[in-house]
């Protein structure tokens, strides 16, 4: 890996277990600013669990234990004095299935900034987020409509706008296109490319074409272990590990 910058987020020897069964085993991984990092691997390999640990979304699941450290700008994300709400203000998330609130389009985007009293005019903020999520033109005339009336692809872009409105540094995306059709998927991939200018993105995907198209770095996980991590080009064209090669060439998984 050629990057010599300081990592923005860094996992150090992270092991995550559900009721004693380890889903993520001793993973160390550095995530760099304004890059897209893809985490790939067969289903059940622990990639979602790892992703969710990066903004403490595993806090809500019973019987989860976590070892190791996750550092954000060199401070421990799980430190005793760290509030998970503060973590999520800086590290936003987009989920596998679009999950807009059953509220209006406007309220969906405005809700997070409002409860957190983020500064500035909320209308400006919502408009900016919707524009960044490439949804503004489709919804600007019906901001008061229910978000549930949007199509699946639109709903997912709304959820991206919801995350963007918080102006986070990092956006975690958990297979954001798995429930979408190819056209919507292409739009969201274009969007990620745009967002890279300002945001750091970590995306979990089981779609290898997607990982190779959009990401700068790729991590390959198998059975909870990090098998290989490096420049996306290298991982896909000159993998160092046999298992990575088997997976990315489709001989496995």
């Amino acid at each position: 890996m050629k990057n010599t910058d300081l990592p923005l987020l860094e996992a150090r020897g992270v092991t995550i277990s559900y009721s004693g069964n380890a889903a993520v085993k001793d993973v160390s991984l550095a995530i760099y600013e304004k890059k897209i990092t893809a985490i790939i691997g067969p289903s059940g390999c622990g990639k979602s669990t790892l992703l969710r640990s990066l903004n403490r979304m595993n806090d809500f699941i019973d019987n989860v234990t976590q070892e190791g450290q996750i550092l954000y700008r060199n401070s421990d994300l799980y430190g005793a004095d760290v509030d998970p709400v503060e973590v999520r203000l800086r590290i936003g998330m987009v989920f596998q299935r679009p999950n807009p609130f059953p509220k209006s389009i406007f309220r969906n985007v405005a809700w997070g900034p409002t409860i957190n009293r983020l500064p500035g005019d909320i209308n400006v903020r919502v408009e900016r987020a919707l524009k960044q999520a490439a949804l503004w033109n489709e919804v600007k005339d019906r901001l008061d409509d229910s978000a549930l009336n949007l199509s699946g692809g639109q709903q997912q872009r709304l959820c991206i706008a919801r995350a963007l409105a918080m102006e986070p540094e990092v956006i975690l995306m958990d297979e954001p296109c798995s429930a979408l059709d190819p056209v919507s998927t292409a739009r969201i991939e274009d969007l990620m490319y745009e967002l890279k200018q300002n945001y750091t993105i970590v995306i979990v995907t089981h779609n290898m074409q997607q990982a190779s198209r959009v990401s700068d770095y790729t991590a390959f996980l198998e059975s909870g272990r990090l098998i290989e991590y490096g420049d996306t080009d290298e991982v896909f064209t000159r993998p160092k590990q046999k298992r990575t090669e088997d997976y990315v060439t489709g001989r496995f998984g």
């Binding site: 954000y72 700008r73 401070s75 994300l77 430190g79 004095d81 760290v82 509030d83 709400v85 503060e86 973590v87 203000l89 800086r90 500064p119 500035g120 900016r128 963007l164 102006e167 540094e169 300002n198 945001y199």
Partner: peptide, 15 residues
């Protein structure tokens, strides 16, 4: 672009 303007926010742990 107003995004990522961290100067507005306190450091982690200073809620």
């Amino acid at each position: 672009m107003a995004a990522n303007d961290l100067t507005k926010r306190p450091a982690l742990g200073q809620r």
